[in-house]
Amino acid sequence: MSFFLRRAVFYVFTAWAAITLNFVIPRLLPGDPVTALIGRMQGRIDSGAEQSLRVLFGLDQDMSLWQQYVEYWRLLLHGDLGLSFTHFPTPVSDIVAQALPWTVGLVGISTVVAFLLGTAVGTGIGWRRGTWADSLLPITTFFSAVPYFWLGLIAIAVFAVNLGWFPSSGSYDRGMVPTLSWEFVGSVVYYGTLPALTVVISSVSGWVLGMRNMMVTVSSEDYVTVAHAKGLSSRAVVVGYAARNAILPQVSSFTLALGFVVGGTLVMEMVFSYQGIGYTLFEAVTTHDYPLMQGCFLVITLSVLVANLVADFAYAALDPRTRQEG
């Protein structure tokens, strides 16, 4: 089996597992919050919507588990994630579709920036091991130990409340109509700077540490010594021999770190009231909006899977060994 086919099979399997997990969790857990809520909503939910909620949350006792599962898949494939309780009667899929682009933008840009910056800094520190650069390590340790949301709180306190440079919450100027104008884009960038910066600062340390350790390991390889012996300039050795090989594990750990970064960013959105999936999830949790919660989880997981798939293919493009094997 070729590399790509194997990875594709794995991701299809993982997607299936995530969707099934989403089906199983509400059925495994004790208590029945949804019935209680449907009871409270009595009469305001039309029968069709109530039916889809029952299917999604397994309230149909007269159906076998297998029938419930099949029905659940049928609804999912039609894009029906149920109705949100709090924003009744808006379908969950609409709310999620509205929030997703904001999160993808925020996470995407800040992750790419953090990755590039962290890798560059890590290369420098790993190369200059034993000099003042090593003293940067404790700082990165500190930042990797701080929870994202707390850095967000500090950033708001300093830059939004005290200095007044950036707005403390929201994702664009509420007085504007969302259109594709320069003014609006500028507002989005202005509101997004502080959250993005905070995500970058808190996630960059992981990349720095990883790259530094890989540089230290790679730099004693024979091919680096040979490159030196050939009389190549130090710069050529760093970029062309050491960093080039040290970056491979960075790319492969990208897929693992992504879930962590996404989790952190979701909480960051809650702190900044940034209208992405994280904030939606937060609202759903505080108002016990179970369909919305499940929908958010599903969309987050599937998006992370897609991002992983991209990172995997990038890795295969960079490292021919992965394509050969098997």
């Binding site: 399997f13 509400p26 992504l258 962590f260 919660m293 989880f297 992370v304 899977l305």
Partner: peptide, 24 residues
Amino acid sequence: SAVSNVFLVIPQLPLIIIIAAQLP
């Protein structure tokens, strides 16, 4: 390995949140 890879790829925090939020 497949099971542990699945758990590695699924973002943990959202998973923990939805489980914890549904527990009584």
